[in-house]
C-alpha cells in the first residue's frame, strides 16, 4: 500500500510551466512540445514512540516525458525508480527497483486568455500498469481520472486538482488483494517574480495543500486491517525558471492524518525536481 501512496503522489499532472510543484495542475503544452521532468523525493514514515518501533524511508526518482499531440491534447509517460528501507525493532530490509509504468492523457476542454487573467479546465485519464518489480509493483491495473482547474491573474497563479484513483480495476496473478481507491483534492498558489529585464528568469514561491484519502484494501470481500488512511498536507516550495529550464523544490508537512489500525505515520518529506521544455 505504501508503494501505491508514494506512487500516486509522484506528479500525476506535470505539464504546466507555472503553478504547483508536486500537484501541478497545468493545462496542455503547445503542439509538438516536449516536456521532460525528473524529481527526487525523500519520504519517511514511523510509528512514533510505539513498541516495536517501525520506520520506513523511501527514495523515489520519477522521470516523466510529456508531449503535446495537439494544442489541446497531450500524452505523458512516467517511470519511477524507488528504493525503500524498512526498519523494525532493529532489523532492516531494503527493496528497490523500477516502479509501475504510468500513462496519462490530458485534454484541454477550455482555456480563456485575456490581458488580465487566464482560466483553463482540463480533464485527465490515466492508467498505471503493474510493470514494476515484485516488491515495488502494485500488482494491479489502476485507473486515474480527474479534472484540473487553472487560473492566472497578473503574476499570481492558482491551480486545483481533483483526482480519483480507481485502484485494482484488474489484478495480476501475484495477488488477490484489491487495493483501496483514492481521492485527492489538491491546490497550489504561486506568484511569479521576474528577475532581470528580459523576463527570461523568474522565481516563484509556491504554497501547496492537499487532502488525500485512501480506502482500505480488500481481500475476498473482507477489509484488510491496518490499511487505508487520510492525509492533509501543507507544502511551501520555491521554483526557479530560466528559459525552458525549471528547478523546483518543496518541503511537505503532514498537518493531519488518520490511519486505520496501527500504521506508521507520515513524516515530513522533501522533493527536488527539474523540468526541461523544448
Amino acid at each position: 500500500m505504501l508503494v501505491l501512496v508514494l506512487g500516486s503522489q509522484a506528479f500525476h499532472h506535470s505539464t504546466a510551466q507555472a503553478g504547483g510543484i508536486s500537484i501541478d495542475a497545468g493545462l496542455t503544452p503547445a503542439a509538438n512540445r516536449w516536456i521532460f521532468r525528473s524529481q527526487v523525493r525523500i519520504l519517511q514514515r514511523n510509528n512514533g514512540p510505539a513498541v516495536p518501533s517501525m520506520k520506513m524511508e523511501a527514495y523515489m526518482f520519477p522521470v516523466m516525458v510529456a508531449y503535446g499531440l495537439r494544442s489541446d491534447a497531450m500524452i505523458m509517460i512516467r517511470q519511477s525508480y524507488m528504493r525503500r528501507v524498512m526498519k523494525t525493532a532493529g532489523e532492516s530490509s531494503t527493496s528497490s527497483g523500477l516502479g509501475d509504468l504510468f500513462i496519462l492523457g490530458k485534454y484541454r476542454l477550455t482555456r480563456i486568455n485575456t490581458s488580465t487573467y487566464t482560466l483553463g479546465i482540463a480533464p485527465t485519464l490515466g492508467i498505471e500498469l503493474p510493470t514494476g518489480e515484485d516488491r515495488i509493483s502494485s500488482d494491479s491495473y489502476d485507473l486515474r481520472y480527474g479534472i484540473l482547474l487553472s487560473g492566472r491573474s497578473n503574476s499570481w497563479g492558482i491551480d486545483l486538482n481533483l483526482t480519483y484513483a480507481w485502484n485494482g480495476i484488474a489484478l495480476t496473478d501475484n495477488t488477490d488483494i484489491d487495493p483501496g481507491d483514492e481521492i485527492a483534492v489538491e491546490a497550489a498558489v504561486s506568484r511569479q517574480v521576474s528577475v532581470g529585464e528580459t523576463a527570461d528568469i523568474a522565481v516563484a514561491p509556491v504554497l501547496e495543500s492537499s487532502y488525500q484519502k485512501r480506502d482500505a484494501d480488500i481481500s475476498n470481500g473482507v477489509r484488510i486491517g491496518n490499511t487505508g488512511e487520510s492525509l492533509l498536507l501543507l507544502a511551501p516550495g520555491l521554483k526557479l525558471t530560466r528559459g525552458s529550464f525549471i528547478l523546483e523544490g518543496l518541503v511537505q508537512f503532514p498537518i493531519w492524518q488518520d490511519h486505520e489500525g496501527s500504521q506508521t505515520k507520515r513524516q515530513t518529506s522533501v522533493l527536488l525536481g527539474v523540468r526541461l521544455m523544448n
Binding site: Q17, A18, P29, A30, R33, T118, R152, S155, G157, Q192, S194, A199, D200, I201, A202, A204, T241, R242, G243, S244, I246, R275, M277, N278
Partner: peptide
C-alpha cells in the same frame, strides 16, 4: 505566465 512559456 512565466519564462517557460516563451519557448513554446
Amino acid at each position: 505566465d512565466c519564462p517557460g512559456c516563451h519557448g513554446g
